[in-house]
Simulated scan of single mutants.
Amino acid sequence: MAFQIPSVPPTTNKNIRFPNTLIAQVEELIRGKESTFSAFVVAAVRAAVEEVQNQQDSDR
């Protein structure tokens, strides 16, 4: 499954610190897209969670 830049879903605020370089990379990726930094991070975390869960399932 290829990662896709998401549109804006309903969200809840959660404060987190990011390295400045990572912020710049994400902002460059979403520039000109109908997305936000938060929506991108949520989609990336979902993809990471799914990957870890799939790995755990295959390890069983």
Results as ranks from 00 to 15, higher is better:
4 Q>E: 12
11 T>D: 14
52 V>E: 14
21 T>E: 15
59 D>W: 00
15 N>K: 13
45 V>M: 14
54 N>T: 00
24 A>Y: 10
31 R>A: 15
13 N>H: 12
58 S>V: 01
1 M>P: 14
55 Q>P: 00
12 T>E: 15
56 Q>C: 05
24 A>W: 08
31 R>H: 14
31 R>L: 12
35 S>E: 06
19 P>N: 15
28 E>K: 08
34 E>F: 11
21 T>W: 15
5 I>K: 09
16 I>R: 12
34 E>H: 11
37 F>D: 04
34 E>K: 14
20 N>Y: 06
12 T>L: 14
35 S>G: 07
40 F>H: 07
13 N>A: 13
16 I>Y: 11
44 A>I: 00
43 A>E: 13
42 V>H: 09
56 Q>D: 09
25 Q>E: 13
59 D>C: 00
5 I>Q: 12
10 P>E: 12
36 T>W: 01
27 E>H: 09
18 F>W: 10
35 S>C: 15
15 N>S: 12
16 I>K: 10
41 V>K: 00
8 V>F: 06
44 A>L: 10
24 A>T: 12
11 T>V: 13
33 K>Y: 03
23 I>D: 09
32 G>T: 06
37 F>Q: 00
55 Q>R: 09
15 N>L: 09
3 F>C: 01
56 Q>S: 04
11 T>H: 07
52 V>I: 13
17 R>C: 06
21 T>Y: 15
3 F>E: 06
55 Q>I: 04
23 I>A: 07
51 E>W: 07
12 T>P: 04
36 T>N: 05
24 A>P: 04
27 E>F: 02
34 E>Y: 08
58 S>L: 04
22 L>M: 13
56 Q>W: 02
10 P>V: 02
58 S>Q: 05
38 S>C: 06
19 P>I: 02
22 L>C: 01
35 S>N: 07
60 R>V: 01
51 E>I: 01
20 N>V: 13
5 I>W: 12
6 P>N: 03
13 N>D: 12
44 A>C: 06
23 I>R: 13
53 Q>H: 08
26 V>T: 03
52 V>A: 15
28 E>I: 00
